[in-house]
Design a protein around this nucleic acid. Structure first.
Lengths: 205, 205
DNA sequence: TTGACATGGTGCCCTGGGCAGTATTTAACG
DNA sequence: CGTTAAATACTGCCCAGGGCACCATGTCAA
């Protein structure tokens, strides 16, 4: 029996809160977990089956009209496994940031492309940040959201994600202001070198 | 011929700077690109071949003693393709953060596990941040690093990454301070609700 | 001269991303 | 009341990517 993945434990975590059909599980993952553990909806459909194989979940088949469905629930062994997992070592975070990759190679394009990229980075982060604002408004209106007893852990995560997106937006503002003075994307190393050195000195501390 | 991936373009970007063997390319990717575009070293070995197939790179085979090696260089078509790519739409950043996932399900474990997780998050981010400090010191000492003419774009990236890791560390400090008052990991939603609401109100603006 | 580390890779198995496709039920609208 | 859009509930398939194992030669320091 293959070792369970972090994705499996994420699904097991949701199952610890209540029973779900695979469809609901996939949607809930997208809504509430995707920001820290993004996985394609398609793959999430395979996870509950693995949990059943491991003895951490049970499947209950029924139907709505003539359409069949499967509802999953966690087992006591599943709860123990989840708790054990919470005490194991974590892998460091991984960031996949195509926009910043473009910035790193921006000297191979023109200044307009660089500044467009920075603006798109800002807009995308702004949109993500906006989603959290809507989510927070919903939670305030619904007096804690779907799981008010979990408000405390959700608030810890919310604080991080909000600051994360705000940080991207403010980096973008800074980058737009700095690149305004660049003659072009390729030769700014010379004219802008005092500012670049300031960044390095700050980073080196 | 299959569409090239972002990983392909990242490698093409390095090839635009100078010629490399696949081995050097893989190492350079790890050193300078991994923070924004992490890929397993193994897979990076396949990329130059795809670039050759697409007509964006040329391979030159020679040997060091009796050991053969292949050095890749970019073609004019490769430079044009890289430039075109720099003008296309970017996909939003993706964050994979197992530590934060654990925080979101921390109510299923005990408070000790949560606080250990937060401490490990802080330590890991501190270590990553430290790597950038060393890198920045190296660049200052070597008067711009391996590619001094690219100092300006590297400084933009460096500013972002430094602030990113600093943000994680400061989130962790905040979280340690807040969880100090929690009675346990499960029932803090009640006693801590005024602080949680403050986070939501802040997020909702 | 011997052992560690750097150079320069390939094979293989499984997970994951992403598109396409299928079928039924419920809600929305004119 | 009938039509249609959206939600529910999934599966198949192909390729990219993660990660381990494995190989060989070159270089440098003790």
């Amino acid at each position: 029996m293959a070792e369970l993945s972090t994705t499996s434990y994420a699904v097991l975590g949701l199952l610890s809160l209540r029973d779900w059909t695979t469809y609901e599980l996939a949607k809930q993952m997208q809504r509430t977990i995707d920001f820290v553990w993004p996985r394609g909806e398609r793959k999430l459909y395979d996870e509950p089956k693995r949990l059943v194989d491991a003895g951490f979940a049970r499947a209950r088949r029924d139907s709505v009209g003539r359409r069949p469905r499967t509802t999953y629930s966690i087992t006591p062994a599943g709860r123990r496994a989840l708790k054990r997992w919470l005490g194991t070592e974590i892998t460091p975070p991984k960031l996949e940031f195509e926009g910043m990759l473009r910035v790193l190679f921006a000297d191979q394009g023109d200044l307009g492309q660089l500044r467009t990229t920075i603006e798109r980075i800002s807009e995308q982060a702004g949109t993500a940040r906006e989603q959290f604002a809507v989510m927070a408004q919903g939670m305030l209106a619904a007096d804690g959201g779907d799981f008010p007893q979990r408000l405390h852990v959700n608030a810890l995560g919310m604080r991080f994600m909000i600051d994360h997106y705000d940080h991207i937006v403010s980096w973008a503002s800074w980058a737009m202001k700095e690149t305004e003075r660049w003659p072009d994307s390729r030769h700014a190393a010379a004219t802008w070198s005092h500012r670049a050195r300031a960044v390095l000195i700050d980073a080196a501390t």
